[in-house]
Design a binder for these strands. Structure first.
Lengths: 210, 210
DNA sequence: CCCGGGATCAGCCGATTGGGTGATGTTGGG
DNA sequence: CCCAACATCACCCAATCGGCTGATCCCGGG
């Protein structure tokens, strides 16, 4: 098999360095370039046409998700392997939907990483066991129905300690409507009170991203 | 100056590799060993007596904080430099109180890292600018007093949607006591209802770490 | 030895919440 | 063209919540 060319994308110099070191000292891989954010990554990918792009999702200035979406939109042939530090559940599915070929956690052993890159280069999907099991459980459950726009707004205000009455004022709707929205939120999140709803909101990443 | 001996502690092979590469290819540093968790770190530190320990805080099996506490307790002379991925505010102060000499974010440039290690070896405190500013603001404000043990328990149950009555049952205390605890939680977190308290709990890292 | 903070409990009371039932208008997709 | 989902609103009612005042017990530090 030919050498596999790589593009490393991560905002941490340390991590880029580590990856570069690992791949350069292993035959069969070439690191073409590094990028520290999504925008840069897209440009470099378009220029250099790497076989595989190793990408962190969480990056300041041009998130990884947007980058993947953009790469897919442009029809770039590079396979994207998401290599993230912690698995947040929230990110996995969107990333894969956006076009990522694989999803690995950074604490994977080196062999697994090398293997994953080879698999990715060959176009096969690679998932960390942890991620894989999450996926199946995500599919298994009917639909973690995300909240409707209005419902999310209400939940956000609830998280700030706003009373139904004040939420109504703030959103220019009646208190009755607020209660209706909240009821729906409760149902969708599988809880029965606002405190638990807020907790679920954070767990599921609906809340918390300032 | 003599060579500075290092112990690297991080659960991610990639990160350890990256750090090792960086320090080994720079004169003046020697990497004595690597550890992937806190317990291992303490043992190796006791054995090898490194000048500086570069340590990640969040690790499965033997958290970094405990490791630092243990090192301090044992009177080990190694300086601990906390090198963490994301700054969560919650961890900084405890880490420094526990005996860490410095606190750096992983996205710091290499120069800064090298410099920080040298400073740490010399016994000086080094803080990422971001961390430093947090510290001053933390000191500036009287005391965001963390919750008492019991109060945290109550808050956790609240986040699960448990009613005061049921919390009382679960903790074998009276409903009145639950209400008292909650009142204190509200005061300490600066909120007025349980939903907002849960939100603050997540924001401040009191909740959310399964 | 006294003080403060944590943990425990009581009773009162008004405000807020959450559930149930029902209804209307809009919109987007099949 | 109709249905599902969203967004809007009303009314009722019991349960829960949050604030207030006041009290006891224990522990560790000054």
């Amino acid at each position: 098999m030919d050498e596999i060319s790589l593009l490393l994308v991560d905002d941490h110099p340390v991590v880029r360095n580590g990856l570069r070191g690992m791949f350069e000292s292993t035959p069969g891989f070439t690191v073409l370039a590094e990028a520290s954010n999504g925008v840069e990554a897209v440009e470099l990918a378009a220029d250099l046409d790497p076989d595989v792009i190793l990408m962190d999702l969480r990056m300041p200035g041009g998130g990884g998700l947007d980058a993947i979406t953009e790469l897919t939109r442009r029809g770039i042939r590079s396979k994207v392997l998401v290599l993230t530090t912690w698995d947040t559940d929230t990110d996995t599915l969107p990333a894969i939907e956006a076009g990522a070929t694989g999803y690995l956690l950074k604490d994977a052993p080196q062999d697994e990483l090398f293997n994953a890159v080879r698999q990715a280069a060959a176009g096969r999907t690679v998932l960390s066991p942890a991620v894989a099991s999450r996926l199946v459980s995500a599919v298994r459950s009917p639909a973690p129905s995300p909240l409707a726009a209005r419902e999310r707004q209400v939940l956000e205000l609830v998280a700030k300690g706003t009373s139904n009455r004040d939420i109504a004022r703030e959103l220019f709707i009646s208190e009755a409507t607020v209660k209706t929205h909240l009821s729906h939120v409760f149902t969708k999140l599988g809880v029965t009170d606002r405190a638990a709803a807020v907790a679920k909101g954070y767990e599921q990443g609906i809340l918390g991203r300032d």
